[in-house]
Design a binder for these strands. Structure first.
Lengths: 132, 132
DNA sequence: AAGTTAATTAACCAGAGTGTGAAGTACAGC
DNA sequence: GCTGTACTTCACACTCTGGTTAATTAACTT
């Protein structure tokens, strides 16, 4: 039951890994304009075809693209679903980047919950840095 | 002048790379609750301290955390700013995952550009996969 | 001063990621 | 059937990651 890594975690790891390479992000951007063959995708880069082919494999592995077959071409098209998952994941931190009140807010909330819990040792400037 | 990779691209690469590891995402989740020392961050994992220390270095390199010093502790706190950048980046694909008209739209655009290019083989199920 | 605690750095290793050129596969066209 | 085109797979090199243990730094404790 208690697997070390969950399905969703693996999906996220695969997607973030795939997105961690500028060439692959560039390929996705290209595919947002519509289907393209491997050769078309490779053209903008100073890189051999096999290299692109492997980048596409990574993208496919993360479910970010799907591939067809038309004659000797393997047209690729974007599948943005995993990006929605990424967007949802980041959303969980929205509050953290919107609020600049983080620590204050947190402190206030603590006091509201229980005024006696934290007498003064919460984040005292004296113990912060200056003890020479 | 014309750098091969831009600043923004590097930032994105660093952030996605950092997020591509489940342990690092887990650490960020922990830090969303507030500051924590390295030891506290390491506790949940069956992993030695140096390993965690390096994960923290990666997160710091991507600007996802900031580190202080309190006595012999190095408290870490979340900096969600790069996550906002990621959210903004994914936003550019929102349309792609919201619309289910992808292929239709693309087909229409192809026809508009050049009606003779693709007579009928656009996305015929027979040529799609069915080879014995 | 000596020892404990917190964390980093150093040295090392296994494995994954990213590129190359060369060979192999699949389809189209003369 | 042979040749060209599109792409993949193979074999290799090289670097980056991610983990380990051992040694080092830094601050508190007694």
């Amino acid at each position: 039951m208690t697997a070390t890594t969950t399905e969703a975690e693996d999906q996220l790891t695969a997607t973030f890994s795939a997105l961690a390479h500028p060439v692959r992000r560039s390929i996705l951007a290209r595919l947002a304009d519509g289907e393209a063959s491997v050769g078309e995708l490779a053209a903008p880069f100073e890189m051999t075809m096999p290299a692109i082919s492997r980048h596409l494999r990574v993208l496919e592995g993360a479910g970010l693209i799907a591939r067809g077959r038309r004659a000797q071409y393997r047209p690729c098209r974007l599948n943005a679903e995993p990006l929605r998952v990424v967007a949802d994941w980041t959303e969980q931190y929205r509050q953290a980047w919107e609020e600049r009140f983080d620590r204050l807010d947190e402190h206030v909330r603590t006091l509201q919950l229980d005024p006696d819990t934290e007498p003064d040792s919460q984040h005292d400037p004296d113990t912060e840095h200056g003890g020479s």
